[in-house]
């Protein structure tokens, strides 16, 4: 699913301008499951915006509405009445939902309430990890179902590189809690972001292929990846002719 996390309230407040009637729009799919922008979060955000505006002395109306999927026209049509009343929409959908919203209601101003972060998996309650980068040319068949594009720090295609040790990658990731880097005192007393270990994707790949007796899959030199199917080919589009209805003759 698409995994996102909420922006700090301060940032959202900063883009409300002089809107007096704010609609917080939740989305009932991915961001509900990752607890960032579902119905509950939309209600809470609306409440927070109301309270904050009252504390600041310029009370605004903030209401909420949640649709099943903000990334599809059909669902947005269902909330036209609510949207009509608002002069600004805080969308708690992923970046796709925000854009669909903006396109569907061209005369409305829509701002994102979330940072869309990655395509991932709930690792355990409260923890999500990135799994796929939507490279458009899936190579999981070669790597035993473990993605080197999303999960290897250097996107190595012929791994593991020389930085792999004890199943961990030499590259650490910045430790973030609620989206904010955790700062610790580094060498020389300077504050710096704390880091945490990351699994070496290629170590995992190696072990899994070995287990399945399929190491042959990675003994050849993997050719350079064709990135045209990835973002490097420019914005992507899928056309399925079998699904397109022709104009009536």
């Amino acid at each position: 699913m698409i995994v996102a996390e909420q922006k700090p309230l301060e940032e959202i407040k900063g883009v409300l301008g002089d809107a007096e009637n704010v609609l917080v729009a939740g989305c009932g799919t991915c961001v509900t499951v990752c607890l960032a922008g579902g119905e509950k979060e939309a209600q809470l955000m609306a409440s927070a915006l109301r309270i904050a505006s009252r504390v600041d002395g310029t009370p605004i109306e903030a209401t909420d509405v949640t649709v099943q999927r903000q990334c599809e026209w059909e669902y947005l049509e269902m909330i036209e009445a609510e949207v009509e009343k608002a002069d600004l929409i805080v969308s708690l959908a992923c970046g796709i939902g925000v854009q669909t919203f903006a396109r569907h209601f061209p005369d409305k101003w829509v701002v994102p309430g979330l940072n869309t972060t990655f395509l991932g998996q709930p690792e355990e309650q409260g923890i999500w990890t990135e799994q796929c980068q939507a490279c458009g040319n899936c190579m999981l068949a070669m790597t035993g179902g473990i993605c080197p594009v999303a999960r290897c720090s250097k996107q190595v295609q012929n791994g593991p590189c020389g930085g792999s040790e004890h199943g961990l990658c030499e590259v650490k990731r910045i430790r973030r809690v609620d989206g904010v880097p955790v700062m610790v005192k580094g060498r020389g007393g300077r504050m710096m972001p704390a880091t945490e270990d990351v699994e070496c994707a290629w170590h995992l790949i190696h072990d899994r292929l070995k287990e399945h007796n399929r190491l042959d899959l990675i003994t050849g030199v993997q050719e350079p990846k064709d990135w045209t199917t990835s973002r490097d080919g420019g914005p992507r589009r899928i056309v399925r002719e079998d699904l397109i209805l022709m104009d009536e003759e």
């Binding site: 250097k154 996107q155 190595v156 012929n158 590259v171 650490k172 350079p224």
Partner: peptide, 28 residues
């Protein structure tokens, strides 16, 4: 070489390339 990750150096906020890996560079 594949190269040390930028997070180790003095421009940790930069974007890396990794269009190819060192193996593919050798072949090239």
């Amino acid at each position: 070489l594949s190269g040390d990750h930028q997070s180790f150096g003095n421009h940790p906020t930069s974007k890396n390339v990794h269009d190819m890996d060192s193996m593919q560079q050798i072949r090239m």
